[in-house]
Nucleic acid binder design. Structure first.
Lengths: 339, 339
DNA sequence: ATGAAAGCGCTAACAT
DNA sequence: ATGTTAGCGCTTTCAT
């Protein structure tokens, strides 16, 4: 049930001043005599007053909250959501920026069509002042819907054409190129790829970037199998690759978890990593560092990117203009033991 | 920026009716002539109207949102939050129940002292109608703060004494007993425990329940090492146990992830599981099924418990009474290959 | 520096 | 079945 608590009026009466004065004190506006300020604060403490956000929002048109939306179009993805360190890193990057500005971060998950509709509704009604969206699939209509609803929005990953909003992204193709060049330079001539679902644009850039870099060096067709981001699916994809061609001498995986899965399969078969097969992951998540052997991987500065996303949104909210900036990040190859 | 959109007034003018009628249509109240309903719907579509939640909440004292709070007192726990399948299961259990009732689920994380304060403030101001709280540490003051603030609250795990609110919980001690009896019946006489941090009440019940059940059967002191819920920490704890006593013939871990870590250590040492050492996990998360070998584990019906938590809260919100029910769940031993 | 008063957009009596 | 009207609790001019 709602705040059946004390109102500004109650505090005002208690302190012997007007509502306006209490409001000024609560909102830290200057021009209130120190003595009165003190009296008001005491009255607030005595009454246990807490402002009613609905009433406040009604006039300020602000909620003081920002949504962090994790969205997928496919079925239940909470399993991935809460097992891939990637999302934790996004959250880690976003929280401090919002907290510093006393903006309440609100996590929303959109895992199905009805959920998406409900979520858009919630946000259109003013559930939050803006949205930071992490879409997992390219064909996700959510960003477009939010932008169309006029909600200030910033994406992790570039928006599809026609959707005008801010974004941060990694130069995924450049990252894949880094991996390809590293493997090539190490003399690997028969590389394969454990790719992610086609629906993810970032994943496609990684795959295309890798094969393109290799093709430029004269490599022939690179075998590709797809996983679903999990370690398990990476293991299975590697098994399929191996069944197709046990002559493979290098593997590039679209994320660290799948790279670990590939390593696991190879270990099961007694294939030495990196001696017989070199493995390169992507992200440089904690999963890469903790792997056995530690993974060589393409570092994606997720926390930084997430912080930038939050700052971009806050800047837009401050400015009040409908324009938002964007930022592209450069990947770095982190060489460990697996390649 | 706030909804600078059309208001009820605009729609009413457009449809040639009064605000009240539009409100009735929007809220699905009967007693509106079909023809008028139609006209209003068209006007809504034409204007692109979306209700202003702040205005609505101001009068209804409802936000239509419920918070799912993940709370820890220790430092950054988002790493665990987004790597332990446990939370995903909680979310999976809660979402459908809320969605069905058109209540917007809002995830809030409370990972530090300032975050906690900000969160309590947000909720006190009416950020959500109630809270489902998953506290990770026994000494977490958050549940008490929310209850004191008068917010309808239901916990995952029993509240500390003095905090009156609803809860759901697993009979952890019974689960540990199940594990102990299984191992004992299999002839294991030198079991050890990979426990969780002492601060978690559920974890303590598991440890105490296990040692108590064993003591009742005449077992001597059981060696204990603690992990931090992650696979990595479970591996390390197992390594310490092994260093202390390589005669161990069984291990009970406080969650599946740590059980996996224990298995990994044993595999590295060439110790056969379950032949030489039997391993029992806790939770029956996906991590148990996917482990090599598949884990024998104590099943905690997390999704069901989470659904129950949500229903308990909704029932209380419907009733408007300050009382909330609670529910204790019984664990089941799932026997697979590791023990 | 403080108070009075006018809304913000909506729902819910109450009237008709 | 529909319209009129009185607030919900707050911020914010505008006076003083």
């Amino acid at each position: 049930m709602g705040n059946r608590g004390p109102t500004l009026e109650d505090v005002a009466r208690e302190a012997g001043v007007s509502r306006a004065t209490v409001s000024r004190v609560v909102n830290g506006v200057r021009n209130v005599a120190p003595g009165i300020q003190e009296a008001v604060r005491e009255a607030i403490a005595r009454t246990g007053y807490a402002p009613n956000q609905a009433a406040r929002s009604l006039v300020t048109r602000r909620t003081g909250a920002v949504a962090l939306v994790l969205s997928a179009t496919g079925g239940s993805f909470t399993a991935r959501l809460f097992s891939d360190p990637f999302f934790g890193r996004v959250v880690d990057g976003v929280l401090p920026v919002l907290r510093e500005r006393a903006v309440q971060p609100v996590l929303l998950v959109s895992e199905s069509e009805p959920a998406r509709l409900q979520l858009v509704d919630y946000l259109r009604r003013g559930g939050a002042d803006g949205a930071l969206v992490v879409p997992l699939d390219e064909d996700d209509p959510l960003p477009g819907m939010l932008v169309a609803a006029g909600l200030p929005t910033v994406l992790f990953g570039r928006p599809r054409p026609g959707v005008r909003c801010g974004w941060v992204d990694l130069d995924n193709a450049a990252g894949a190129r880094l991996a390809a060049e590293h493997l090539w330079a190490a003399g690997r001539r028969r590389p394969a790829v454990v790719a992610a679902p086609e629906s993810a644009p970032a994943a496609r850039e990684r795959l295309d970037g890798f094969t393109a870099a290799l093709a430029a060096r004269g490599a022939v067709a690179v075998p590709v199998e797809r996983g679903r981001y999990t370690e398990e699916s990476g293991r299975d994809a590697m098994a399929r690759l191996w069944a197709r061609d046990p002559g493979i001498d290098a593997v590039f995986a679209a994320n660290d978890l799948m790279a670990r899965g590939a390593c696991r399969f190879l270990a099961e078969r007694g294939v030495a990593v990196p001696e017989a097969v070199a493995v390169v992951g992507f992200d440089d998540s904690t999963a890469a560092r903790d792997a056995a052997p530690p993974l060589t991987t393409v570092r994606q500065p997720v926390e930084e990117m997430a912080s930038a996303m939050a700052r971009l949104l806050l800047a837009r909210l401050d400015a009040g203009t409908p324009r938002t900036g964007s930022r592209l990040f450069e990947p770095v190859l982190v060489v460990r033991e697996s390649a």
